[in-house]
């Protein structure tokens, strides 16, 4: 027969196990399985009395079917497009020219953090050249002065990243190229 002390100890370990399991469940690895979206009626901005709530699509219904991400809307929109899981329209007006560019630009070449390899393709499948050029950024490589401070304030890349595109907590997704290895040859050197 087990002693009272032994029983108490096993209960202690049970609690410890439970706490650990909850901790694991909340990590980014598990987040893929635990993605969740608030129903519109509880999202804090829709009026629960609005008749629209019976008709509008629920975010969970639409987004749970798309490739997972750990931040933002919890959907990797680039992957969703590349895998053909969504096929959003490129234009409404038939005369609109669809422009896609496939050049990578290396940025932050003299900084301390890893180099930024900016891919034009992933941006231009969604956006038009005119959305960034020439107002936000000059087209000439090396002509732009980037500032993380400005980006955090919603300028430059921060016009989208941090508001509608993946947030600025995802450092490594832009600062994605090691400084101590040979630089990718195909990429253009920026500032």
């Amino acid at each position: 027969m087990r002693s009272r002390r032994g029983r108490r100890r096993s209960r202690y370990y049970l609690w410890l196990l439970l706490a650990t399991l909850i901790l694991i469940a909340r990590t980014p690895v598990a987040a893929d399985m635990a993605r969740r979206w608030l129903p519109l009626v509880k999202d804090g901005i829709h009026d629960p009395k609005s008749p629209a709530l019976r008709l509008l699509q629920q975010p969970g219904e639409a987004l749970s079917r798309l490739p997972a991400d750990v931040a933002g809307s919890q959907v990797n929109w680039t992957a969703a497009l590349e895998q053909g899981r969504i096929n959003p329209r490129t234009n409404i007006l038939p005369e609109t020219k669809i422009r896609v560019l496939d050049t990578d630009i290396l940025l932050n070449l003299r900084g301390g953090t890893p180099i930024v390899r900016f891919p034009h393709r992933q941006h231009t499948v969604w956006l038009d050249c005119g959305n960034c050029h020439e107002q936000l950024f000059k087209s000439k490589a090396g002509a732009n002065k980037f500032s993380m401070q400005l980006i955090l304030q919603g300028e430059q890349c921060g016009v989208c990243h941090g508001a509608v595109a993946f947030p600025l907590t995802q450092c490594g997704r832009c600062h994605n190229t090691a400084r101590d290895k040979p630089l990718p040859a195909a990429a253009v050197r920026g500032s």
Binding site: I45, L53, L56, G72, L152, Q153, G154, E155, G162, L168
Partner: peptide, 27 residues
């Protein structure tokens, strides 16, 4: 009308649910 005009009264015009970086922000 109701399908777009579906928000709570008194909401501030801005982006909601964004800005996870918690920067000073103009969103």
């Amino acid at each position: 009308c109701d399908l777009c005009h579906s928000g709570r009264h008194g909401l501030e015009s801005r982006i909601h649910g964004g800005n996870q970086s918690l920067g000073p922000g103009r969103w």
